[in-house]
């Protein structure tokens, strides 16, 4: 069980071409335990930067993240990066096992491979797989560690629509099997509506929260029509999001 509070007053990159302008400013966000939150924003608005802050990869910012990602009671973290980031010189299975503690349950890993349809590819080197399969392997890695907090950075981008839909269903299935807090970054509104409990809209850089919308519709009822309807409702009711919708 891990909730999450982000209070980021300012984040800027040193030495970049745009040193003076922060990429994130006055971003406050509180996430309940096991909540599935989708972060929606235009590309380049600082979403990946935000996830890197939450992951503790980037520690140069003003503000606070609780629980502290580098602290003693840091949540167990799964991170699905935008690119799969598998070690090309280790087999798919070794890639996942390396991320796990020694006392992991091999049966659960095989179960995960089974659900994502990678059982046959376990002994293969990642570069011999398609990008879609590599992405699924990266998902297995993130779920296999049984995370308290799962960060996903556009994990479905550049996948063909049927594969993207299958992986979307998969993410929900695995999340229901073992609930955990999720921050899911996307620029695709329909995808966010299909997945989230709650949508957080981010402004263009410097990123800050400009919209916070709960989705009351149960996930089973979110077919294409319902998603479209929710989208147009958002457009009517939240004029400030015009640029994003």
């Amino acid at each position: 069980m891990s909730g999450l509070t982000l209070d980021i007053r300012r984040k800027r990159y040193r030495g970049g071409p745009d040193t003076a302008r922060p990429i994130i400013e006055n971003l406050y966000l509180s996430v309940r335990p096991n909540e599935f939150v989708c972060l929606v924003g235009a590309s380049g608005c600082g979403k990946t930067t935000l996830l890197n802050l939450v992951a503790g990869l980037d520690r140069e910012f003003e503000g606070a993240i609780t629980p502290d990602p580098a602290g003693a009671n840091a949540p167990r973290l799964g991170y699905v990066f935008q690119n799969p980031r598998l070690l090309p010189w280790r087999t798919v299975r070794d890639n996942i096992v390396l991320a796990l503690p020694d006392d992991h349950d091999p049966a659960y890993i095989d179960h995960l491979f089974e659900i994502v349809g990678l059982s046959e590819a376990r002994a293969v080197y990642p570069e011999r797989l398609s990008v879609g399969m590599q992405r699924r392997a990266a998902l297995v890695r993130a779920f296999a560690i049984n995370p308290d907090l799962l960060l996903m950075d556009e994990p479905l981008v550049s996948l063909d629509p049927p594969t993207a839909r299958r992986i979307r269903e998969l993410i929900l299935r695995l999340w229901r099997e073992r609930p955990h807090t999720v921050l899911f970054v996307t620029h695709d509104l329909a995808e966010a509506i299909a997945l989230g409990d709650r949508l957080i809209f981010l402004s263009a850089a410097p990123a800050t929260v400009i919209g916070d919308v709960a989705i009351p519709t149960p996930r089973e009822l979110r077919d294409t029509a319902a998603i479209d309807a929710f989208g147009s409702q958002l457009r009517r009711e939240h004029r400030q999001l015009a640029g994003l919708l």
Partner: peptide
């Protein structure tokens, strides 16, 4: 990218060096 991945998944020093 891979070094960050190893940090997130807490590989530790030895495993990061080796793998």
């Amino acid at each position: 990218d891979l070094l960050e991945m190893a940090a997130v998944y807490r590989f530790g020093r030895v495993a990061t060096l080796r793998h």
